[in-house]
Amino acid sequence: MRLKLLGLAAAVALLAACSSDQDAAGTGSVTGATSATAPTTNAGAVRPGTRQDFEVNVGDRVFFGFDQYDLSPEARSTLDRQAQWLNQYRAVTIQVEGHADERGTREYNLALGERRANAVKNYLVARGVDPNRVGVISYGKERPAVLGSNEAAWAQNRRGVTVVQ
């Protein structure tokens, strides 16, 4: 705490230090940060039934068209694998995150993300996954997976991510 205090005091003197100081004072932990980061390349170390296993060997996300929430054939294929995996590891619970790209207003995107997350959940449930194991949450456009304001980035941000809890 003292150190933090000192650091802040120093920051006061440095007007420009605002943003870094923010990080210091504001606890780096971010609520529900998408877990999609840090993909593990070391497949050999992956233990079956874990989040890593799911992300690496199953695929944790599906993508949507602009302002859409229907599932594409590719998405269904991914979800089929997810359902299979989930039916294998029945103790696992998941939360499906719905995300939108930046080209929408904040609140509408929250609603849209919820639609997407539910589309994923409903598909998994239809494939035999117990609905009680599936939670949903929408982040709207608050947690982009890819930075940038171009079609490539937007396409990757319009997504439904299945997070193993």
Binding site: S19, D23, G26, G28, V30, E142, R143, P144, A145, L147
Partner: peptide, 11 residues
């Protein structure tokens, strides 16, 4: 707001 876009800290 502060921090990177994909881990934005909002207060």
């Amino acid at each position: 707001e502060s921090g990177p876009a994909n881990q934005r800290v909002k207060r």
